[in-house]
């Protein structure tokens, strides 16, 4: 992967009391890259993700996201990133249109560009007929596509996806990955955390965390070669031992 670095992490340490959640992490993520951030439950992924999105300060180390230092400019980082989590990304009791307007407003779009982007988005997703429907009434697959579109409505440099395609059918899932490929091809970086190793296979590069450290980082193809494995799942099971508590 070539190109500009949009996430740069040097010697990141995060401690909670005596517990070291992130132990000297070092990695770069590049513009337009689909980067998979893997690890067992409790490996320290969520802590790192919170630091990268400006919600938590590191104990030490240098972390820049979209060119801004997470310790000094976390507000600027928040304007340059999008976030989508499968569980609670959209408000069930608001309509499709209201959700788009709400998120666009939070991300700081003015009324004019918000209107334009909303119409474009509804058209792209072929969602015009759903505009006034409540989110609660939409099938899961449509919700996920909408949640992703809303997460990039402000054209961020990076979008963080937390287990994006859990539970959907294989066709919808593929439509979702096509949207991700399309977004990455426009230069937006995709940062995916997931437990599902077949999602990892879609990434340009993946890192695997265990007990607060990054124990592997490479393309899925190289990792499979290195560990003589057929799938990333096999690589993962071999090296990402879960914490014993």
């Amino acid at each position: 992967m070539t190109g500009k670095s949009v996430i740069s992490v040097k010697n990141l340490v995060k401690k909670f009391g005596n517990f070291t959640a992130n132990d000297n992490l070092c990695f770069e993520v590049y513009e337009g890259e689909i980067f998979g951030f893997l690890g067992a439950n409790g490996a320290g992924k969520t802590t790192a993700l919170r630091i990268l999105s400006g919600l938590l300060e590191p104990t030490s180390g240098e972390v820049t996201v979209a060119g801004y230092d997470v310790s000094k400019d976390s507000e600027k980082i928040k304007k340059n990133i999008g976030y989508m989590c499968q569980k609670f990304s959209l408000y069930d009791d608001l309509t499709v249109s209201e959700n788009i307007v709400l998120y666009g407003g939070i991300y700081g779009l003015d009324n004019q560009s918000l209107r334009e982007r909303k119409n474009k988005l509804l058209k792209q997703l072929r969602f015009e007929e759903y505009e006034t429907r409540l989110i609660v009434d939409l099938p899961l697959g449509l919700k996920q596509k909408l949640a992703f579109s809303v997460a990039i409505i402000h054209n961020p440099r990076i979008v963080f996806l937390d287990e994006p395609t859990g539970g959907v059918d294989p066709v919808t899932r593929r439509q979702f990955w096509e949207m991700i490929w399309e977004t990455a091809s426009k230069g937006i970086t995709i940062f995916v955390t997931t437990h599902y190793m077949d999602e990892a296979e879609y990434c340009d590069r993946v890192s695997i965390m265990s007990e607060g450290r990054i124990v592997a980082i490479d393309t899925p193809e190289n990792l499979k070669k290195q560990y003589n494995a057929e799938t990333i799942e096999q690589v993962f099971v071999r090296i990402a031992r879960p914490l014993k508590n």
Binding site: A40, N41, E163, G167, H195, Y196, M197, F236
Partner: peptide, 10 residues
């Protein structure tokens, strides 16, 4: 196994 990591799933 929903939401459970790959090691525990195995």
């Amino acid at each position: 196994t929903t939401g459970v990591d790959a090691v525990s799933r195995t």
